[in-house]
């Protein structure tokens, strides 16, 4: 019984994560500037990668017929945790570089970060 619940919860997370990933990719394609696209990339990374990886680990826990299913579950969970650390850090570093080197053209009404750094 508990295995069935785990399996179908994991499957739901996997498919919902796929939908979120598709939404994030559409956002990345349609948004006008780099700083707006960062927002869509976050959706693609957290909801589109961390959530389905937890789903995969639940699916593996819920299917005891697969040899070594606990290994698959643990490894997927560890991958999800690592992505939770890595993805925001990568976006932060990229945004920092884009703002510092002024390689992205944008027309903001006000740029608070630049004003702070000029002081």
């Amino acid at each position: 019984m508990i295995e069935q619940v785990l399996f179908w919860t994991g499957s739901a997370l996997f498919i919902i994560g796929g939908v979120f990933d598709l939404l994030g990719s559409i956002g990345l394609l349609r948004f006008p500037s780099f700083y707006v696209r960062l927002h869509a990339a976050t959706i693609g990374a957290i909801y589109g990668a961390v959530l389905p990886l937890i789903g995969i680990s639940l699916i593996a826990l819920g299917s005891p017929g697969i040899p070594g299913n606990y290994t698959i579950a643990g490894a997927s969970f560890v991958t999800a945790l690592i992505l939770l650390v890595v993805a925001p850090m990568g976006s932060h570093v990229l945004a920092h570089a884009a703002h510092k080197s002024k390689s992205v053209s944008w027309k903001p009404f006000v740029d608070m970060l630049e004003e702070d750094e000029e002081k």
């Binding site: 690592i82 650390v85 890595v86 850090m89 932060h92 570093v93 920092h96």
Partner: peptide, 13 residues
């Protein structure tokens, strides 16, 4: 170097 967020994250990774 880079920002402190990148430093802390890189230490873990």
């Amino acid at each position: 170097g880079l920002t402190s967020i990148a430093r802390t994250g890189t230490r873990i990774i």
